[in-house]
Amino acid sequence: MSESEELDELKEEEATSEWLSFALGESSYAVDILRVKEIRTWEKMARIPNSQPFILGLINLRGAIVPIIDLRLRFGLEQRERDRETVVLVMTVMTEDGEKTMGIMVDNICDAVKLTEDDIKSAEKFDLAIAERFVHGITDIRGAMAVLLNIDSVLDTIDF
């Protein structure tokens, strides 16, 4: 048993949450894994007229009409040609009118990490270039900083 595995096991004793990390360009982000319904590759979407630029369109998810959001554009980053690694994370979002399903398009997914409450640090001191309400905190994943996202704010339909 390696040292890190041992550590992981120790952590399990405490209250842990699991996060799925992904990249947008150079930056790392992560979302609560319990909110990730499924991971899909890019597919053709129906464009929505006169919508915000970050709304890519609508897909058919087993009979449900689900909007897909380009997370890069949502965060004010520049658009990027999609490639083989581009994926769509289908998320459960809690809104005022109840639970909705929406997808976010990200550059690639990295891995799933277990975090204890102590692992999650406040992001207050940092200018993360995205709205504060989007951010749950920051953490260290393999030595690099990852921004933990508050997905309900990121996908708040008020901004749509």
Partner: peptide, 27 residues
């Protein structure tokens, strides 16, 4: 007819969406 509000928001010029034979979405 499928509602857009179920997972998204109401769009003025659209009364909903549907899924076509090839599985794609049409407004």
């Amino acid at each position: 007819v499928k509602s857009l509000e179920a997972n998204y928001i109401k769009i003025d010029e659209l009364s909903g969406a549907t899924i076509l034979g090839d599985g794609s979405v049409a407004l």
